[in-house]
Amino acid sequence: MPATVLISEVGPRDGLQSVARTLPLAHKLAWVTALHAAGLREIEVGSFVPAARLPQLADTAAVVDHARTLPGLTVVALVPNLQGARAAIAAGVHKLTVPVSASAAHSLANVRKTREQMVDELRRIAALRADLAPQVGLEVGLSTAFGCTLQGLVPEDEVIALAEQVVAAGADEVGLSDTTGMADPAQVRRLFRRLQAAVGRHAGAAHLHNTRGLGLANCLAAFDVGVTSFDSSQAGLGGCPYAPGASGNVVTEDLVFLFERMGVHTGVDLHRLVAARAVLQRGLPGEPLHGMVPEAGLPPGFVYADGRQPDADPLRAATAGLA
């Protein structure tokens, strides 16, 4: 069997929170269904935050309810506090993601708590999880781990110390997020190696942005040092509304192509993934969608890592008329 990576689709949460318009619920459900049909087996479907802060995600409980009917899908939701965790568990999610900022300035802007207060909140969430739903996963994404547009440099020693604290507080895994797109491949290799040395099996996913064009290079750097779980967003939607200049998640379509072309199995079918892109565009007409592979198509002779041949129709035909 070829090497395998997990592609965790975050567009329905990270992508939609950064779009000014609200994707109607029916379109959200159709989009999540199409992403699952493409072979994605972990999707962050929304977040449990006050509707006044992110009205685009006010219907997350309904999306969770639908996503739970899709076979083999791990349904993930972001929760910034104990109240959100309680609501997510009640809705039936399979995994909670808690954002903890490595940058002190970003922590206050994003969740209105200090880093220390967020570690305490995580400890309460872990206790709630243990009491109500021990089968639910609990992961932490360390936001702004590679730099912050509000604070500037984020010392690596502080990132690693914070990772150790969140594991001690009860997180099953802790990943590193390039929230503001400031990372470079050398930094990614160095910091993930340090994370692995510090927390061992608790080292988690790479959540990398393409703000300055280094998203795929940084994903490859993380893979080179043993990372096997990657967050990405269909069409590159997303960013952080509380970090100025934070735009551009890694494009799921391009990331899948990168790994499959290298012989690394993702389980994702690119033609069906592009079909999901069309579903998204119907719900958000005129919204800019990004990605090189959907525009260029698959090269002659392309085969998937497991030896499958792609569908006969050119990929570009499936994206005709899409921006």
Rank of each mutant, 00 (worst) to 15 (best):
T4N: 12
T4K: 15
V5E: 08
S8P: 00
S8K: 15
E9D: 00
E9W: 09
Q17E: 12
Q17Y: 08
S18K: 12
R21E: 15
P24S: 06
H27P: 04
A34S: 09
L35S: 00
A37E: 03
A38C: 02
L40M: 11
E44V: 02
F48T: 02
A58Y: 03
D59Q: 13
T60M: 06
A61H: 13
A62L: 14
V63L: 10
V63P: 11
L73H: 03
T74L: 11
A77N: 05
P80D: 08
L82H: 05
A90R: 14
G92Q: 07
P99I: 05
H106L: 14
L108C: 08
E116I: 11
L128V: 10
L128G: 00
R129L: 02
Q135I: 02
V136N: 01
E139L: 06
G141Y: 07
L142K: 05
C148H: 02
T149L: 13
Q151W: 00
V166T: 06
A168H: 09
G170L: 11
G170T: 10
D172P: 06
V174C: 13
G175F: 11
T180G: 13
L191G: 03
H209Y: 09
H209E: 06
H209S: 11
R212C: 00
N218V: 07
C219L: 08
C219W: 10
V227H: 01
F230T: 06
A235R: 14
G236W: 07
G239K: 10
C240K: 12
C240F: 10
A243K: 12
G245V: 07
V250E: 09
T252M: 08
L255P: 10
M262T: 00
H271P: 00
L273V: 11
V274A: 15
R277V: 09
Q281I: 01
P285F: 06
G291R: 09
E295M: 12
A296I: 07
P300F: 06
G301T: 01
F302I: 00
R308L: 02
A312I: 07
A312M: 03
P314V: 03
A318W: 14
A318G: 14
A320I: 09
